[in-house]
């Protein structure tokens, strides 16, 4: 390989090490967002289920997003 040729090419997604960090960040975001919404609902309605439901839903949603971005494409 020529030393000056870029390995990836402009249009390709970044290679694994940064993908791992992005996936972790997606996962955190899902938990934060939907867990946060659930927690807010619980505070508003004086209940206790929505935080758990929100956390689970957020986790599932982020995993699906990671699947879409890095496994499927």
């Amino acid at each position: 390989m020529e030393p000056d040729q870029p390995r990836g090419g402009g249009g390709q997604p970044p290679p694994p090490p940064s993908e791992a960090w992005t996936a972790l960040s997606h996962l955190l975001s899902g938990f934060l967002l939907f867990g946060g919404i659930g927690w807010g609902l619980d505070k508003l309605l004086d209940m206790r289920v929505f935080t758990v439901v929100g956390l689970l839903a957020g986790g599932v949603a982020s995993l699906y997003l990671i699947y879409l971005r890095y496994v499927k494409s």
Binding site: T22, S25, S29, G30, L33, A61, L68, S73
Partner: peptide, 28 residues
Amino acid sequence: WPPDVPWWVRIILTPIEFISNILLRPVT
């Protein structure tokens, strides 16, 4: 904007990706 998904899935996923890519990156 995750590609190739129905609109109602985007409503769920786009906020996650926005938080992750735009807001959370400098924090992490």
